[in-house]
Design a protein around this nucleic acid. Structure first.
Length: 262
DNA sequence: TTGATTGTTACCGG
DNA sequence: TCCGGTAACAATCA
């Protein structure tokens, strides 16, 4: 279940799953994370998320950089471990648990400059306390590109995915085609705050939930009730038709009435 | 087997 | 430089 929350949850898990003595690397499909062998037998000291990027820090000073992309999965299980399922790019083991990373877009070892380069091209992470929203607003305020593009541009601000994009803009009553330049600071602040709130909820619940009633009720709802308009035909607020859009090749939705076309 | 998918990047043209 | 479009890549499930 990508789109941020899996990653964020992983990085913010109260109980780090990588406390083990031996870090083993497995490659059932014949594909290794580049340089992964170097980490064999070394401890992971910390795991941290920067937007949708995961960084496992090792005692050797190396960084394992993982991006799950659309399909990547992190599978945790208790030992004794079973045979890796599917395309496991790296397997990490503690005394008690095994963690497989399946099908990530990125699974590589970075040195310090490599990590610095990565962080330099990622915008402020909505979920990080050290994030600087001013950086995101500066980019948005001088851009002619539509806000629907900008808030999902991970170099502008990091964390929002395709579903959150549609849902957040609907919640704010902003059409995705509104140019960045037309977004003032007040609106941006509302956008940032809403993204922060929803993503935090996603981390906690391990599910994307953007419907207020569902948020108030707590717990995890059936998928159909978790979104307001993503994939929907009618707007829950005004009962009008939901427009299907295409933003940079990804589907998006908007309500013509609640989100007036600029 | 096919199509769709919560993502990213490189490259090109206007 | 900025911005939009396209293709490529990835693994899984229905």
């Amino acid at each position: 279940m990508p789109e941020g929350h899996t990653i964020h949850r992983e990085a913010r898990d109260q109980k780090p799953m990588l406390t083990g003595r031996d870090l083993a690397v497995s490659s059932p499909q014949g594909r290794f994370a580049e340089g992964a062998r170097r980490l064999d037998g070394h401890d992971c000291k910390a795991v941290e998320a920067f937007g949708k990027h995961l960084v496992y820090r090792f005692e050797t000073g190396d960084h394992l950089h993982v991006h799950l992309g659309l399909f990547g999965r992190i599978r945790k299980a208790k030992r004794p471990e079973k045979e890796p399922r599917g395309a496991v790019r790296i397997r990490m083991m503690s005394d008690t648990h095994v963690v497989d990373i399946n099908g990530p877009t990125i699974c590589e070892i970075l040195d310090e400059p490599g990590l610095a380069a990565l962080l330099a091209r990622i915008g402020p992470d909505v979920l990080r306390s050290d994030a600087d929203p001013d950086r995101a607003f500066a980019r948005i305020a001088k851009s002619r590109a539509p806000i629907g593009r900008l808030i999902m541009d991970q170099s502008v601000m990091a964390g929002i995915g395709n579903i959150y994009r549609t849902e957040i803009l609907w919640r704010l009553g902003v059409h995705p085609d509104v140019p960045g330049r037309a977004v003032d600071r007040v609106l941006f602040d509302r956008l940032w705050a809403d993204a922060q709130r929803l993503l935090r909820i996603g981390v906690t619940r391990r599910a994307i939930v953007t419907v207020e009633e569902a948020l108030a009720a707590g717990g995890r709802r059936r998928k159909g009730e978790r979104f307001n308009i993503f994939g929907k035909e009618t707007c829950p607020a005004c009962a009008g038709p939901v427009m299907k859009l295409d933003i940079a090749g990804r589907r998006a939705f908007a309500c013509e009435t609640c989100q007036p076309v600029p």
